[in-house]
Design a protein around this nucleic acid. Structure first.
Length: 450
DNA sequence: CATCTCACG
DNA sequence: ACGTACGTGAGATGC
């Protein structure tokens, strides 16, 4: 038994398998044993965020793991390596000399010193920034930056996913077993480590294919259920925005509705670009919006971004009141609260200087992100009992999504039961003005189930 | 071991 | 005046 390397809230799967087979509650006892070693502040966070019944649930999920097909990953890895080699040749021809494409330092010197492309900005450390947004802008000037972006995407997928994931396949179970931190995030979210299964690619077609390697056992399927727009629904509730509440109640496209309201465009004349801008604003509000941040995200002038925000506050006045009240509460008390009363500490809120902006935005975001975290944690605690009669296991949590593996014939029943648990998870402690809604999918692999 | 970059919600 | 979207984890580079 190796307990020495245990942290307070993480259980290496080899131990979890052994312990949980004997006693699903053992993680909790281990956690209790390690608690005295924790830093004082960390203890306070844990006490306030921990819901004890969640601990054995997480242990069972870690123990269950998810089957990952090594051959699929291996094939993809080889394909990535080939494409990268081709791109590397092209990049170095364009650069005029060989260099390490994976080195931001060398790339910056090539782009801005040797090739003298415009827009080189040095950061605090004196190095040129070569992030994706910089290279995207630069791609209109020259062929090279776009190829570096392509190379980087493949390098990321290969090193972090197709290669590293293979090393995490447990030889005894043939499955990948993550570890969950129950107090990993300040807001009350879980965190997934070793490996992180909460950041498996999905946004691009190439990345999404990695999810094809996450498969169900023969005769079973993967079922994914995810909350639809849970943070915006919570915002509508806590800030009391009637227009948003109505839109959710009537099942409207929330970003299109926001766009229509803000820009006076009828819904039947909505364009993808106007909707995209409104979507960015909706997210911005959740993040504690600033003119600068929105301008950078949308790549528009700062005064125009500020105009959008002013307009938003004008049309949804409850939003500004929510933000002001939340910040005032944090300054007064040193914490904010989720709808369920869980405290999230904001020790920097009264700081002077550049840190003040961060603390302010974090305080605005925390009740929203934290309430969403509470909701899904409540669902997870109830889930084991609710699906106990079904041949199903809860495998993963990805902030607003739960992934299950279930015998094929029971998939329909599982979706019905799990959806009911998730949609009802706020009750009875909190009566939401906006109903929670859950989307479901199923398939032989995670790509199909999503 | 810090920094940069990028994957996710 | 200042520097900014919120919350994470991980791999590669280079000091």
């Amino acid at each position: 038994m190796r307990v020495t390397h245990l942290t307070f809230d993480r259980v290496p799967v080899a131990d979890a398998v052994r312990y949980a087979a004997e006693d699903a509650d053992v993680t909790l006892r281990l956690w209790e044993a390690f608690k005295p070693q924790l830093h004082r502040k960390r203890v306070a966070t844990v006490y306030e965020t921990l819901e004890r019944p969640l601990v054995p649930v997480l242990a069972r999920m870690e123990m269950a793991g998810i089957r990952v097909d090594r051959d699929t990953l291996s094939r993809m890895s080889n394909a990535f390596a080939q494409s990268m080699a081709g791109l590397e040749d092209e990049i170095q021809k364009l650069a005029g000399r060989p260099f390490n494409v994976g080195s931001p330092k060398q790339l910056g010197e090539i782009l801005f010193d040797e090739m003298a492309l415009p827009g080189g900005v040095k950061g605090k450390t004196g190095a040129y920034g070569t992030g994706a947004d910089v290279l995207e802008d630069l791609a209109t000037e020259h062929e090279l930056p776009g190829k570096v972006l392509d190379w980087r995407q493949l390098a990321k997928l290969k090193s972090t996913y197709t290669d590293a994931l293979q090393d995490h396949i447990n030889p005894e179970t043939g499955r990948v077993h993550t570890s969950y931190s129950i107090a990993g995030a300040n807001t009350g979210r879980l965190a997934s480590t070793d490996p992180n299964l909460q950041n498996i690619p999905v946004r691009t077609e190439e990345g999404r294919r990695i999810r094809e390697a996450f498969v169900a056992e023969k005769g079973k399927v993967l079922v994914s259920l995810d909350y639809s727009q849970i943070e915006l629904r919570i915002l509508a509730h806590v800030a009391g925005i009637d227009a948003l509440k109505t839109a959710f109640r009537e099942g409207h496209d929330i970003h299109a509705m926001t766009a229509s309201e803000m820009f006076d465009v009828p819904l039947d004349q909505m364009t993808p670009d106007i909707r995209r801008q409104a979507k960015a604003i909706n997210f911005g509000v959740i993040y504690g919006i600033s003119g600068f941040g929105l301008a950078r995200n949308l790549r528009i002038p700062r005064d125009q971004a500020q105009g959008f925000i002013d307009r938003y506050f004008e049309r949804f006045p409850g939003i500004r009141a929510y933000m002001d009240n939340t910040v005032a509460f944090a300054k007064e008390n040193g914490f904010v609260q989720t709808l369920f009363g869980r405290k999230i500490h904001t020790p920097e809120i009264n700081a002077k200087g550049p840190g003040a902006g961060f603390a302010r935005r974090a305080a605005i975001n925390a009740p929203i992100q934290g309430t969403a975290a509470d909701v899904i944690r409540r669902a997870m605690i109830r889930m084991d009992g609710a699906i106990g009669h079904l041949p199903a296991k809860m495998l993963l949590q990805v902030h607003d999504e739960l992934l299950f593996e279930v015998e094929e014939a029971a998939a329909h029943d599982l979706i019905g039961v799990a959806r009911e648990v998730m949609e009802g998870a706020a009750a009875p402690a909190v009566k939401m003005d906006v109903a929670l809604s859950v989307d479901a999918g199923r398939g032989a692999n995670w790509a199909e189930a999503h």
